[in-house]
């Protein structure tokens, strides 16, 4: 008797709003990934800098100030000044805009193009799949940074070209990931079900299957954001892509590199630290997302 009552209670329709305890449970679940939370907070901080930073700084990022060149950090210039007397803090803040934009554009470009291509070749297979996967294999024969370097040097030094070059270098990662997912998804029953009720094949591939194939790519996208920052800055350090006097982290470190044996450490330390912290945050979030997803599967 009591068991029938139990089962009736069980079929009662659940309220669609998450209950308080469920919400607390979710919070507690995430607190077990403190590094993930830390990464999120750092990225949020960078976003705040992107939005409000420039309006809070009093100096201009590019206009030289001959009165105070290579100045030590002090209360007026917390990060010091570079050889043209420009405030390094201001330049780091302005550079955040540029570098984060590059990171996000590279990640979303390579993600959207790569996933779409992966989806198509994974679902339809055939000769197109063979050709594209061969090209992907060849692209994997180059370290991503070298490929981006070759493309940038062929395209010319602009921000836009840097984004195209790095995004091209990372697109194969997404093609491979999404294709692999699609190969398993297309054999699932709900794919057959979607076809049998008369959906055209492009609809099955894009609407029914692709959203389910994107999870690993989303993790990858976070990681690629971090790598893109490192690559863009690395190219700029070599004098490729983004060039002085633009306020960009890699450019600033490169300018500071000339000062390495004269001891003006602040010129290169702060912009470099900004790069590392940003890349670290994206990596933590990417790794954290992967951990959370495997944990939730369990």
């Amino acid at each position: 008797m009591s068991s029938t009552q139990n089962s009736i209670q069980n079929i009662e329709i659940k309220p669609s709003v998450i209950s308080r305890s469920e919400f607390l449970g979710k919070i507690r679940f995430f607190t077990r990934f403190p590094l993930f939370i830390f990464g999120i907070l750092v990225i949020l901080f960078y976003l705040l800098v992107v939005i409000f930073g420039p309006s809070l700084t009093v100096y201009d990022p590019t206009i030289p100030n001959p009165q105070y060149t290579l100045g030590q950090p002090n209360s007026d210039y917390p990060f010091g000044t570079d050889k043209f007397g420009r405030d390094i803090l201001t330049r780091v803040v302005y550079a955040t805009r540029l570098d984060l934009m590059i990171a996000l554009l590279v990640a979303s470009l390579s993600f959207s193009i790569g996933s779409l291509m992966g989806c198509i070749v994974g679902y339809y297979g055939g000769w197109l799949d063979k050709v594209i996967m061969r090209v992907v294999d060849v692209m994997f024969a180059f370290p991503a940074f070298i490929l981006a370097m070759a493309i940038t040097s062929a395209l010319g030094d602009t921000v836009q070209n840097v984004i195209i070059a790095i995004a091209t270098a990372y697109t194969p990662y997404f093609i491979r990931l999404t294709r692999g997912e699609m190969l398993t998804l297309r054999t699932r029953q709900y794919a057959d079900a979607a076809i049998s009720v008369g959906n055209p094949s492009w609809r099955v591939a894009l609407i029914h299957l692709l959203p389910n194939a994107l999870t690993p790519s989303l993790v990858q996208m976070t990681l690629v954001s971090g790598w893109a920052i490192l690559d863009a800055a690395g190219l700029a350090f070599l004098g490729l892509g983004i060039t002085p006097p633009t306020a960009e982290w890699g450019v600033m470190v490169s300018e500071g590199a000339q000062r390495i044996i004269t001891g003006e450490w602040w010129v290169w330390l702060y912009p470099g630290a900004a790069i590392v912290l940003a890349a670290f945050a994206f990596n933590l979030v990417g790794d954290g997302l992967r951990d959370i997803m495997t944990r939730e599967e369990q």
Binding site: L35, G226, L230, A233, G234, F237, G250, V253, S254, G256, A257, I260, I261, W265, W268, L269, G272, A273, I275, V276, A279, F280, F282, N283, L284, D287
Partner: peptide, 20 residues
């Protein structure tokens, strides 16, 4: 954490820190 940090370090910056 160490491995993640290693993956996040900009090579050119680490080299400069080392030289300094």
């Amino acid at each position: 954490v160490f491995a993640t940090l290693g993956a996040s370090l900009a090579l050119f910056w680490l080299a400069l820190v080392g030289v300094y």
